[in-house]
């Protein structure tokens, strides 16, 4: 594995994660600077290489640099290689941070990769990330976005299927309150036959929070036997929350299975009453319903410890606390 950093035990304790996940290596990027290594960050897995530990990349915006920051991260998975990446982004203070990030992910033939993207920033932070993804033959990519908190969070994903039999599973959960904006734009491009793509994005929107979802599936004329699915579901908790959803299918091949669905709804009143008759107070019942709604996305996290931690972060978030782990006062995971 070629990666251009070394673990930096000397890192100031301010940035250290107090409760690291098991079997996980951590890398810190502070204001775009890779700690103990060269910037921008890049990772290359050789042919057949299997990452034994997860790699957690924790990007932090710190008040020592308040200018607009443009950064990049590059991931290359060689033939048949596999690995799991956790990307966390945080702000350490409520300053007006603006971050523009580009992430490239390429998987060669039969590579398998999972990306868990955890976004947890203050209300003044604007963070826009553009993911450029290329998948080779038989490759499998899973990406799970957890946009927990942030002023403006924008994720653009441009994913191209370049060779047959590749598959991607894209999922996201976004939670807004106050005047936050979460914006997801997904372009899945089926250029070749016999690839599968699956998208599931769900949002819970409170206060005056706004969510935008734009999902475009393009199936080229030769891309026969494509299977492409997309779903976007939004739960409005308050009267002023808003969701805009725009699913787009452009299909130029005949023999394909494609579907898309989008909903914007509210909590189910019958469920609520049922729970209350069993003695579950209304507020608690609403949290249970929202957790249930979120679970469909969170259950895609294959690592149990990470999933449990994300579940508890989401629960705290739904209870209106800025999320952090129970054993640590830092606002990170």
């Amino acid at each position: 594995m070629e990666q251009n950093y070394i673990y930096a035990p000397a890192l100031t304790s301010e940035f250290r994660c107090k409760v690291p996940l098991k079997e996980t290596r951590q890398l810190f990027i502070v204001n775009g600077k890779v700690q103990g290594g060269k910037s921008p960050f890049s990772l290359r897995l050789k042919e057949g290489e299997v990452m034994k530990e997860m790699l957690q990349i924790i990007s932090v915006r710190h008040k020592s640099y308040k200018e607009h920051l443009a950064t990049q991260q590059d991931f290359h998975f060689g033939k048949g290689s596999s690995g799991k990446i956790i990307q966390c982004s945080h702000t350490f203070s409520p300053d007006r941070f603006r971050t523009t990030e580009k992430v490239t992910i390429s998987l060669e033939r039969d590579a398998v990769a999972e990306f868990y993207i955890m976004q947890n920033e203050h209300n003044n932070a604007e963070h826009s990330t553009s993911y450029e993804v290329n998948l080779g033959a038989g490759a499998f990519l899973k990406m799970v976005f957890l946009s927990l908190h942030g002023g403006v969070i924008r994720n653009d994903i441009f994913l191209d299927f370049n060779e047959k039999h590749a598959e991607c599973d894209l999922a996201g959960l976004y939670l807004t309150d106050s005047k936050q904006l979460m914006d997801n734009n997904i372009y899945v491009n089926h250029l070749v036959p016999e690839c599968n793509s699956n998208q599931l994005f769900k949002g819970i929107l409170d206060d005056e929070g706004v969510a935008r979802f734009y999902g475009r599936i393009n199936v080229a004329p030769d891309a026969q036997k494509t299977e492409a699915y997309q779903a976007n579901h939004n739960l409005l908790i308050s009267d002023k929350a808003k969701a805009y959803t725009s699913p787009q299918l452009e299909i130029y091949a005949g023999d394909v299975k494609c579907s898309h669905g989008a909903t914007i709804g509210r909590l189910n009143e019958d469920e609520l009453f049922y729970m209350r008759t069993r003695g579950i107070p209304a507020a608690e019942a609403r949290i249970l319903q929202q957790k249930a709604f979120a679970y469909e996305v969170l259950e895609k996290i294959s690592n149990t410890e990470l999933r449990e931690r994300m579940l508890s972060l989401v629960e705290r978030r739904l209870r209106g606390e800025f999320s952090h782990c129970s054993t640590c006062i830092r606002n990170c995971c």
Partner: peptide, 15 residues
């Protein structure tokens, strides 16, 4: 009422 995603055990434990 059916409540997808809330397990019966969690539900009754909470109650």
């Amino acid at each position: 009422i059916e409540i997808p995603g809330v397990t019966n055990v969690n539900f009754i434990k909470t109650a």
